[in-house]
Design a protein around this nucleic acid. Structure first.
Lengths: 160, 160
DNA sequence: GTAGTCGGTTGTAGACGGCAACCAACCAAA
DNA sequence: TTTGGTTGGTTGCCGTCTACAACCGACTAC
């Protein structure tokens, strides 16, 4: 019996509110927060940067979206020159997506913009609290991701 | 100079990821997390519960959405019987929105469902960490809300 | 080779949000 | 009291993000 129900409610309410606020901020301040990146760019480019060249489906899995969505977004990013694509030498169906130099630059720029913005928004925070919060948030997100399997929800026990 | 740029980047990245994961969870598990409530219900009903009867525009402001959106959502909630609406006695243009009994019940149910879900997702957390995280998240959300004014962005310093 | 599977693309649809136009009620000033 | 401007809300239209389904070409197992 790890958590008080009160704490669970409080935490989930807090998360819901934060998610809302986050969405809000990122839609309002899109230009000044994303820079060169289209709004969805972050979610795709970060896995590319972290895990290197990979195929569309892997990317979709990692960023938690449907393959069809990833396909379209990758197309858009490719048109903007932020990612590059080459056919998978081992599999004629697949292609491999890679972060381009421009993509890496855009990512860095976005990161800087965000950090700058966070500087004003988080005045009044001290380093320790912020670092602690980072850790807790990372842990939380991991657990959340684990609790909500990437796909195939609501396909109950009835295996055909 | 309160925060290291490294910490700011880490924190913003963490928030972005959490926002994403949160959205993801709430769309996947909508049924089992919201219960009677439509997906947007939470955001409107909570302010109603906390601050009592109020008009549509106030509600929109509090939940950080456009008045037009609030108007539509309130209409939907009214049709489902979760809120009630009466004309403002002091102003013939406005109406006052109030949480109905069914609305309060739905809110409680949603709260319970979430808490239950959080119970599994957050196994491995102890009370202290969770409470600490709650506090930090609340503080963070407040600061975020403060940094991103509810409306009228990109209208810089040039006061007329 | 043929049948089934897998990776990706495209079509369609729905939820959510904003902006602009509009209407009705309010208010202030002539 | 009429008139002009303001305010609260609704509606129409659009853009974004997402999923699901149908499809196509390439792979693989038999």
């Amino acid at each position: 019996m790890p958590l008080t129900s009160q704490t669970r409610e409080r935490l989930t309410a807090g998360i819901a509110r934060l998610v809302r606020a986050g969405r809000h901020v990122s839609s309002r301040a899109a230009d000044s927060l994303y820079g060169e990146l289209p709004s969805f760019g972050w979610a795709l480019l970060v896995p590319l940067e972290r895990d290197g060249e990979q195929r569309c489906s892997a990317l979709a899995l990692r960023s938690g979206i449907d393959v069809s969505v990833a396909s379209r977004q990758v197309t858009a990013l490719e048109r903007s020159g932020l990612v590059e694509r080459r056919p998978d030498p081992h599999d004629g169906r697949a292609s491999l997506i890679r972060l381009s130099a421009a993509g890496a630059a855009a990512l860095a720029q976005t990161r800087a913009l965000r950090a700058e913005w966070a500087g004003e928004a988080l005045a009044g925070w001290d380093e320790d609290d912020a670092r602690l919060l980072s850790e807790l948030i990372e842990r939380l997100t991991d657990d959340l991701g684990r609790a909500a399997p990437p796909a195939v929800r609501s396909a109950p026990v009835t295996a055909p």
